[in-house]
Nucleic acid binder design. Structure first.
Length: 559
DNA sequence: ATAGCAACTTAGTAAAAATGCA
DNA sequence: TGCATTTTTACTAAGTTGCTAT
């Protein structure tokens, strides 16, 4: 039900001027002085690579759609990638129970390490987490271990935790070369398992790795937090691919749970997860045809809604007065969803998940009615936990004005983006060092201001000296100072705008609405009209995901 | 009519990579 | 040039939807 809200109304129609797009020249490395030719060659290579990529791109949006329900005609892949086997602890790293060292069996040791690795996390202090963990851990123990280890508080994971920290540290301190070796090894895995062939085209898989075992990290007050998420075996995995494709090989000594050939679904592999009993799927990346087409359809639905939304609104206003209670309730629900962008709010099994609600599962205790609140009459106050246990408390007011400097244009774009994020309640924890980083930025602004004052003074002085004189050198100096002042002003403005943007963004996550709610065609058209380069608002991933929109959208696109 | 579930989208957080800065 | 900060990517939990079986 949540659809697209944009600020396209604030857009002023500009004439289209073709902008030659070029990957911003920030070069990758910081090697010694490169010769001009080298830099030039590197840039040429980059452009060539980009063109190559563009040539390779599957322009599926120009093709005819398949008949209803058919997702593909041919699908071939290598199967999912399994996490490495558990490596036993070295002999000098010991677990202690009640002060005495205990050599654990391998399965019990593995689970103990899961806990030890999380000890710096708040999770491990929570009662529910500790209880769930301990119960599941004991199931992995041998009979003797179970008889000995009766109390989590008597367990000492200190050495395991220290070893883990050391490993993390060591990984951080690897030399450049070693890091490169790792990177290449990872790339090899991606090359082998990270792609599939779907109807003659090579497509990137979104999540080709089987989720490794560990302790379940539910959000909020989740009753199952801390439970053991078990290791998945090939015997648990269903493979989906074409009959006439090369069927993926299970790891040596194993077999798949099942191999099926269902082209009415988009997944390549699936398994059932043990904590909640839900299915997990291996699916394609966001830049694939299957995901892109669906996304495009979504925005088309939103666009259609525009033509009937007035009628829907009139209807529910009418229904609010209906004699049927059910109709009135539906009208209120619709009103909430429309006005406040609440999610639908399905029923959930009690005790299985955290207590979160949406529109239809709201309860009386989530709402307070005020005759007056803050000088406003008849106010409804909502206070409840929504998806991902994000607190929803409703208030809002946003306006945006258009300026002509790029930084300001972007601020205005971000504000529009932010309006949607606020409407949809997309929150984030304020970054750890937010206040500090804000202060740093302010300090920079202050110092830049001083610099500007100085530069202005110098310019004045230079002008004075150059006055009346026809000495070319002096004139050049004046020009130089002018430039310096200008540069300073630009930088100052940029920083000030950045500070505003950041402050307004403190606990709002823009990425979700940008990724899922804003019709990319509106953003693309906005860039064209505003003469803002697209990569200022979309990074590589987003440009990839929205390739269809970038390709098909002209400046006159109207949502 | 509806409960249950498979399939898919949406979402925030953690880790990794890129960038900025003294 | 090495460290800190910021941005991007990876990961996976938490929703919604619509079909199927009862």
């Amino acid at each position: 039900m949540q659809t697209v809200f944009t600020k396209c109304a604030a857009m002023t129609p500009f004439s289209l001027s073709k902008v030659i797009k070029e990957e911003g020249g920030h070069s990758v490395s910081t090697k010694k002085k490169k010769t001009k030719e080298e830099i030039e060659a590197a840039r040429a290579l980059k452009i060539k690579k980009k063109e190559e990529e563009e040539k390779q791109r599957w322009r599926w949006w120009e093709e005819e759609k398949y008949e209803d329900g058919i997702k593909w005609k041919f699908l071939e892949h290598k199967g999912p990638y399994f996490p490495p086997e558990y490596q036993p602890l070295p002999d000098d790293v010991k677990f202690y129970y009640n002060g005495k060292p205990v050599k654990l069996s391998l399965p019990a040791e593995e689970v103990a390490l899961f806990f030890a690795q999380m000890m710096d996390h708040e999770y491990t202090t929570k009662e529910v987490f500790r209880n769930n963990f301990f119960r599941d851990w004991r199931k992995e123990m041998t009979l003797e271990e179970r008889q000995l280890i009766m109390d989590l508080n008597k367990c000492d994971f200190g050495e395991l935790n220290a070893m883990h920290k050391q490993k993390v540290e060591a990984r951080k301190n690897l030399s450049k070369e070693e890091k490169l070796v790792n990177k290449e090894a990872n790339q090899k895995i991606v090359d082998e398992y990270g792609y599939c062939v779907l109807d003659h085209h090579r497509e990137r898989i979104g999540n080709f790795k089987i989720e490794p075992p560990g302790l379940f990290r539910g959000r909020g007050d989740h009753p199952k937090q801390g439970m053991l998420k078990k290791r998945i075996q090939p015997e648990d995995v269903i493979i989906n691919c074409s009959k006439d494709s090369r069927i993926p090989e299970p790891p040596a000594g194993h077999r798949w749970k099942e191999v099926r050939h269902d082209n009415t679904v988009t997944w390549l592999a699936s398994w059932t997860e043990n904590v909640q009993g839900s299915c997990k799927y291996v699916m394609l990346n966001a830049n694939s045809k299957l995901k892109g087409e669906k996304d495009w359809e979504k925005y088309e639905v939103a666009r259609k809604l525009k033509t009937c939304v007035d009628a829907i609104r009139a209807q529910y206003q009418e229904d609010l007065k209906s004699k049927q209670m059910g109709t009135r309730q539906r009208a209120v629900a619709l009103y909430f969803i429309d006005k406040l962008a609440l999610r639908a709010g399905n029923e959930k099994e009690e005790g299985e998940t955290a207590d979160t609600v949406g529109c239809c599962s709201l309860r009386v205790e989530h709402i307070t009615l005020h005759d007056t609140l803050d000088e406003q009459k008849c106010v409804v106050e909502f206070d409840f936990l929504g998806k991902d246990c994000i607190l929803i408390v409703i208030l809002r007011n946003v306006t945006a004005a258009m300026k002509d400097n790029v930084a300001e244009k972007l601020l205005s774009y971000n504000r529009a983006n932010r309006a949607v994020a606020i409407l949809c309640n997309h929150q984030r924890a304020p970054p750890k060092a937010f206040e500090q980083s804000m202060a740093n930025l302010q300090a920079k602004i202050d110092s830049r201001k001083e610099q500007l004052d100085l530069a202005k003074k110098e310019l004045k002085q230079a002008k004075k000296e150059a006055k009346g004189s026809s000495d070319n050198k002096l004139l050049i100096v004046v020009e130089k100072k002018k430039k310096a002042v200008q540069r300073c002003e630009e930088q100052l403005l940029k920083m000030e705008v950045q500070a505003t943007d950041r402050e307004e963004n403190k606990q709002i996550a823009l990425s979700t609405s940008k990724l899922n709610y804003l019709d990319p065609r509106i953003s693309v058209a906005w860039c064209k009209n505003m003469e803002v380069q697209l990569d200022k608002i979309y990074n590589k991933t987003l440009r990839d995901k929205f390739a269809w929109a970038i390709d098909m959208t002209e400046h006159d696109f109207v949502f």
